[in-house]
Computed example of a mutant assay.
Amino acid sequence: MLSAITALGLFYPPPPSIFLTAMSAITCTSLAFIGVSEVRGKHLSYSKFWSANKPGGGGADPVRISSRAGMLFFYTPALLASAAAFAVPSLMADERGLLVALALLLHFLKRDFEVLFVHQFSGAIVLDSAISISFSYFINTVCILYAQYLAVGAPEPAVNLKYPGAVVFAVGMLGNLYHHILLSKLRKKGDKGYKIPEGGLFGLVICPHYLFEIIIWVGVALMAQTLNAASFVLGSAFYLMGRSWATKRWYVSKFESFPKGIKALLPYIY
Rank of each mutant, 00 (worst) to 15 (best):
V171F: 14
E156W: 11
S122H: 15
S184V: 09
P157C: 03
L127S: 04
L186G: 04
I144H: 02
L109A: 14
L186F: 09
F138A: 02
Y163W: 15
V126M: 03
G123Q: 07
P155F: 11
S132F: 15
G190T: 10
Y149V: 08
L106E: 03
I133H: 07
I125N: 09
P164Q: 06
A103P: 09
K162D: 07
L106P: 05
L183D: 01
E156K: 15
Y137I: 10
Y194H: 05
P157E: 02
Q148D: 12
A93R: 10
V159W: 14
F117E: 09
G193Q: 13
V126C: 10
L177D: 05
L182G: 01
G165L: 02
L183C: 04
A166K: 04
L150Q: 13
H179R: 07
F113A: 10
A170W: 05
Q148E: 12
L104D: 01
V152L: 07
V126S: 00
L186A: 05
K162I: 15
F113E: 07
F108I: 09
D128H: 15
V115Q: 00
G190H: 13
I181G: 04
F169L: 09
V167Q: 13
Y194K: 00
E95V: 14
T141I: 07
L104I: 01
D191G: 14
R96H: 03
P155R: 03
D191E: 15
L102I: 14
A101C: 08
A151C: 12
A101I: 07
H180T: 02
A103N: 07
A166N: 07
L98N: 10
I133S: 02
H179F: 14
K185W: 09
F138S: 00
Y194G: 01
V126L: 06
I144Q: 02
L127H: 06
L127G: 06
